[in-house]
Design a protein around this nucleic acid. Structure first.
Lengths: 123, 123, 123, 123
DNA sequence: GTGGTCTAGACCACT
DNA sequence: GTGGTCTAGACCACC
């Protein structure tokens, strides 16, 4: 989505931030199932990071079963739609937890939170 | 709440991040209406930031009508509960927007989001 | 066991060879459950490899659940004996497969292989 | 069997590794008794090694009585089946020793090793 | 061209 | 002291 001139959060390793961004692109369909991903060198330029850091990103994504590599061919998005669906659920759940804990810190219950969503819907 | 060993986001000025944390403490009641807030020096130690940055934080909070200063006495939380309630609504709304836009990016509608909250509630 | 002046097989990445050696040390009890492992820098000296390569070794072992890390404290062997037992079984199975496929290539059946083991036992 | 794109172990001289591969081919019958072996040049291409190295391989095989050379005709596999049988036993024994010492290192006895073979057989 | 690996050296946060 | 991360630059095997 927005790669260049990215500002990286100091609290989280760059490679994990890039992992998250790529995951989002896969879930949103910006990166299609089975699609070839940018080469290590290209992505290094896109995200203005070191190629080694990109390798780490790809390795992490591979460990999680989200990508796979063909030697000499490149790195590709998994072809299993179930994997992507699982990823979507995980990311949604994380968002939801952040939201509800944030609300709880403000002293707002889940019922009230749902009510706020619905009221907003009307506007 | 949790001041020390804080990790600051490079993308946002530190003073604004501290402002948010203090607002949250006021909304949750950790800092009561009319209560005396820590001295600039003490808060600088608590948050491990520069006293000048704390001054900026207090100035910002005063501008927003959340705090007021008595010369020679210190800085105090506003005594208007309406102000705090308004603050709570603002912060809640921001959380909600973040949540819903995040979900939208994942291709999840508000209805589905609400459903997820309710399902989670059961567990 | 034998770390220094090691000769590394060109066919397999060094980091995976070291991973295997460490696994063997854990299975044989040379590295006990929960024991502190050498620091990244020490192991780099022991195995005459780069500290970064050791980090990769430790990360791989952690991914496999064989080690865990305490920030600022070091890396430790897992405390779950079940994990070590599983590791032992995996390594034994690999040895067995290598043996039987090797024998098969020589035109020797499993029965004959077993017979050879038993006959050797007598000597 | 598989000559090209071979990966050679840095710990053992290449010529000895090739010797082992050819022995295996003789034992398995891939190279028949008395058969003419490839010319030094052809084998050099097959195994992507230097012709001098092939000469050394043939010399070693001749020393072990596995091959013989007819001047001007080429190199041939021995015609003595007893020699091949002996070779087979030697290679099998080496495999077996490797297997059992490996298992011993894992703390697994010969009886248990045999049991593992049998259990595997059932599957 | 592709990714995979290794080294060297640096800085960081945590204990 | 510990491991974690990042960069820079190199060489390799595979296609």
């Amino acid at each position: 989505m927005e790669e260049d001139n990215m500002e990286y959060n100091a609290a989280l390793p760059i490679y994990l931030q890039v992992v998250t961004m790529i995951k989002r692109d896969i879930v949103t369909g910006e990166l299609l199932l089975g699609a070839k991903m940018p080469s290590v060198r290209d992505m290094a330029l896109q995200y203005t990071i070191n190629p080694n850091t990109v390798s780490r990103v790809y390795k992490e994504l591979e460990n999680e079963g989200i990508c796979f590599t063909k030697r000499g061919m490149g790195t590709f998005v998994t072809e299993e739609s179930a994997k992507v669906e699982q990823l979507k659920q995980e990311m949604a759940k994380e968002l939801l937890e952040q939201f509800l804990t944030g609300m709880k810190k403000l002293g707002i219950s889940e019922e009230e939170a749902i009510k706020m969503i619905k009221e907003r819907e009307i506007c």
